[in-house]
């Protein structure tokens, strides 16, 4: 079953809502396709290792984690995704640009309660660029509906 693609719309909170929101794409994993929205909040890959009583966010937020192959996995990625959702995230975005195994690790799972999306390349760079500049942003995730490709008729 081909993985469903995700459309990610990003609206900057501290800017006048003039321009169109930034539109990016990703891939849903773990049978988790669906809608979610919240404030973008970065988590260090090592923060999803134990259930210690660390900070809990108040309002709806969407977790983004840039995975690094140089950080030894303290937990399987599926468990990290679940832990992020258990900590209250409305959805989880994994930047897998620097971790080639991540996609394979999550491909066969089918049991995530809320959306988990993998992003890479220019889509990931755009999101992490906002994080790096601490640009507060609201993110909406939904299923990407591909326009129907009309078969070629020889008229």
């Amino acid at each position: 079953r081909p993985a469903l693609r995700a459309v990610i719309k990003v609206a900057l909170l501290n800017h006048e809502p003039t321009g169109k929101p930034i539109t990016l794409e990703g891939v849903f994993v773990g049978g988790s396709a669906g809608y979610a929205e919240g404030k973008l909040m970065q988590y260090h890959p090592l923060s999803l290792c134990n259930t210690s009583e660390d900070e809990r966010q108040e309002n709806d937020f969407i977790t983004i984690v840039k995975l690094e192959h140089r950080v030894p996995r303290c937990l399987p990625l599926l468990d990290k995704a679940r832990m992020a959702l258990d900590k209250g995230a409305q959805a989880v975005i994994f930047d897998v640009s620097d971790d080639a195994n991540a996609a394979a690790e999550l491909r066969d799972t089918d049991s995530l309660p809320r959306p988990v999306v993998l992003v890479e390349a220019e889509h990931a760079e755009e999101l992490m660029g906002l994080v790096n500049k601490n640009e507060e942003a609201k993110v909406r995730i939904d299923i990407l509906v591909e326009p129907p490709r009309w078969p070629h008729y020889d008229v």
């Binding site: 970065q42 260090h44 090592l46 900070e55 601490n134 942003a137």
Partner: peptide
């Protein structure tokens, strides 16, 4: 010690 510091929306080691 590795400390995960939250600065707004960012969290860095």
């Amino acid at each position: 010690f590795m400390h995960l510091e939250r600065i707004g929306m960012k969290q860095i080691g």
